[in-house]
Design a protein around this nucleic acid. Structure first.
Lengths: 414, 414
DNA sequence: CAGTGTTTTTTCGAGGCTCGAAAAAATAGG
DNA sequence: CCTATTTTTTCGAGCCTCGAAAAAACACTG
């Protein structure tokens, strides 16, 4: 089980460390890398000269404009955009989006497409996904050989091995091994990730000051999803993508949830639940298939207008989220929260009840120290997360390959 | 942040690996160690001969009786009991227990003592703990210099740094930095751990087949505690010992909990809650301070006798535990559960309602595959866990010391 | 009971890696 | 143009692990 460190692993790990340092810092000098990795200058020099020869890093002469320091100026090291490229595929309700991203993280090309995911057959869903990838790969400006990885994100449950979608609210079909399908079709390594986990990954790269070691990303959308980073690592379940915050039980035998069970947090805080309560349809009413973003915005506007069923619906959503977070905080200690998705724009309506509920829970001891941030648009986040995930795979597994693929518990975000 | 691997770390880590292999396997030969660590025979030979010279390992000639294999017989390596010793201190409600344990894990001496922890002053509580340790250290048979570590376990919340008890139900006093107190008093490194976490550690050593990478230990006692192992590592909160399963919210605004809040799982499943329901005192009744184990056993007997308030009380406990586990399983996926403590002996009364509740939750999809095991006596478990935790500290930090103490996320149980 | 086969353990040289010290490189200031 | 300063590279030393071969320790056989 626990495996010793072999001599050749040393170089591999330190190579990966140098690449990671460059990806994080942007344009660090060798001296800066030596400082962050606590390796000697000689070692960094040796490794980086290797990496430059291999075309993974490049020297970017003007390290920083106007650095009027006395001695030899630092030479910035940066990722060579042409070293590789990755492709992201984000499949969400009625929407499919692909992008090609170079090794430095810049979008090279993209394509988006509306679909009717809820009614499509299994074959045509898979077909659309492979077709859109094929079109991008056929782009004449693109060197297909450089595509080192495809990362696909989807709402729903994926397996820990990042091979398959197990279940998703956007389609009735289950157990689609997208990763295997892509690998077979294109011969490119692929992974299948959960959308909320990718949101969390992206937040960490966007704002490492706020989202560093411990934080929570909650998707307030038709359903409720969560991405959780604990101690610097993405938290996943043991078998699935895990973190099904939306299906923690808020009230035993409570409102009917889209998942068929009763009393889940989502059955109070999902868009369909807010809609159902605002329209006073009763907690047993069958969840509607979809509520448009425009409708949700109208609902929020009505709730802000005056005290009526709309406002009460948001209050109930806040209460469910608050108790849910309270239970979560009992397990993991409070942490900063990012609310993402359409209903994050209505967080002003949700927050009072949420804070009131959380104050009733174990996590509420530090209620005031729990801070919330909102981001209404989830799609760019998910894509960024996918891109980072794929690029880091390239960093580690392709540009710093080890003899054996040593599976480490959890997946480091950095 | 992420730190490179230096050349001298290599030996340190591989030394630690060899020691860990011996601790796990008991009496492995060098060849077996080479196999489990995937290091070469030469390396294992070099490291183990070092360790033998240093008195950490010993060669135990008869590797196994009657091994009628053909070639040169394997020489078993075992931990030298005299290499070091550790001390465990378990402080629970009205009870204090200390033990000295040799490097091989055998109890050398012990002492137990009844206290009135609920009413004692802060000073006398600390005084009793240091006094009992001092008495053990004064044992003429004991070489005090060999005590390398003191591990103290307590019910309640400890900090992640394992220095202090932040809050405990066994005493009104808070924020007692026992680890620092012991270090100052005796000059021996000390740690402060949560009791349920130590239960989990011990279960893993007792039955590594069942309790390997992912499992849950739940203490059914006056309060409800949890120790959680995920992906082979003890799961702790980010600031505290975490995993406050007992204070997840079962019913918003529900029964009064000992913690002062309402609707916690514990307010239905803790001994005092079962007692309160069985005696039909109402959910708002102030929790009693303590219910004796004998009273609880009588309660269980009455519940088995016939359908009355006692049986209903256990049913409610099962329901709360079931929904709580269901919410937990939504986050981490289902895993084997060990029920520990007095009320684990009444698990037959709890299980039906528990399974029924869990079937209503997201985790319930695999309800049948969730298996429960019971262990009525928590104290030995807690002590074993403490001992292992302290011994592994000695293995890693004293017998395989690195230049820098590199804090890894989570604490490996192995 | 000596010889042979088998398995474990040790020995030894080779190859790699990181480190520290010193040298080389590149610039600003005088 | 020279000096001070900082960054980067070079080079030898010291470890560490590895593979191959040797040594050790026993069972089996005739």
């Amino acid at each position: 089980m626990s495996v010793g460190i072999r001599h050749d692993d040393l170089r591999r790990r330190n190579r990966a460390m140098v690449i990671a340092a460059v990806r994080q810092a942007g344009q660090p000098s060798r001296t800066e890398i030596a400082a962050t990795t606590s390796l000697s200058h000689s070692t960094i020099s040796a490794i980086s000269s290797d990496l430059i020869v291999e075309g993974i890093l490049t020297e970017s002469k003007p390290s920083e404009a106007g650095s009027l320091k006395r001695g030899r100026p630092q030479v910035g090291l940066s990722l060579n955009p042409e070293a590789a490229a990755v492709m992201t595929v984000v499949l969400s309700l009625n929407f499919l989006s692909v992008a090609v991203i170079d090794y430095a993280g810049q979008v090279v090309s993209e394509e988006q497409r509306r679909l009717d995911t809820l009614t499509m057959s299994r074959e045509s869903l898979i077909g659309e996904c492979t077709a859109i990838v094929r079109r991008r790969l056929a782009d004449p400006d693109l060197d297909v050989r450089s595509i080192a990885r495809i990362a696909l994100a989807i709402q729903g449950i994926t397996d820990t091995r990042a091979r398959a979608m197990l279940w998703s609210p956007i389609t009735p079909h289950t157990d689609i091994a997208f990763a295997d399908i892509f690998e077979d079709a294109f011969g490119i390594p692929a992974i299948m990730e959960n959308d909320c986990n990718m949101m969390a990954v992206a937040l960490r790269w966007r704002d490492p000051d706020r989202y560093r070691d411990d934080f929570i990303a909650i998707l307030l959308s038709h359903g409720i999803g969560m991405g959780l980073v604990l101690k610097g690592e993405l938290f996943t379940g043991t078998h699935s993508s895990g973190g099904e915050f939306g299906h923690m039980i808020h009230r035993p035998n409570g409102a009917l949830c889209r998942c068929g069970r009763r009393g889940c947090v989502e059955a109070y805080a999902g868009n369909y639940a807010i809609w159902r309560n605002a329209r006073q349809m009763g907690e047993d009413a069958e969840p509607v298939a979809d509520v448009s973003d425009a409708d949700m915005r109208a609902l929020a506007a009505a709730a802000r207008e005056g005290d009526g069923p709309e406002r009460e619906a948001y209050r109930k959503a806040g209460e469910a989220l608050g108790y849910g977070l309270g239970s979560l905080f009992a397990l993991i200690d409070p942490a900063p929260v990012a609310m993402v998705g359409v209903s994050a724009a209505a967080f002003d309506l949700i927050e009072p009840a949420l804070r009131q509920a959380i104050a009733q829970t174990a996590g509420g001891q530090h209620s005031k120290s729990i801070s919330f941030d909102t981001e209404p648009n989830e799609l760019p986040l998910i894509r960024e997360g996918c891109a980072m995930r794929a690029l880091i795979f390239v960093d580690q597994e392709i540009f710093a390959p080890g003899v054996q693929a040593r599976g480490s518990a959890g997946k480091s975000v950095a």
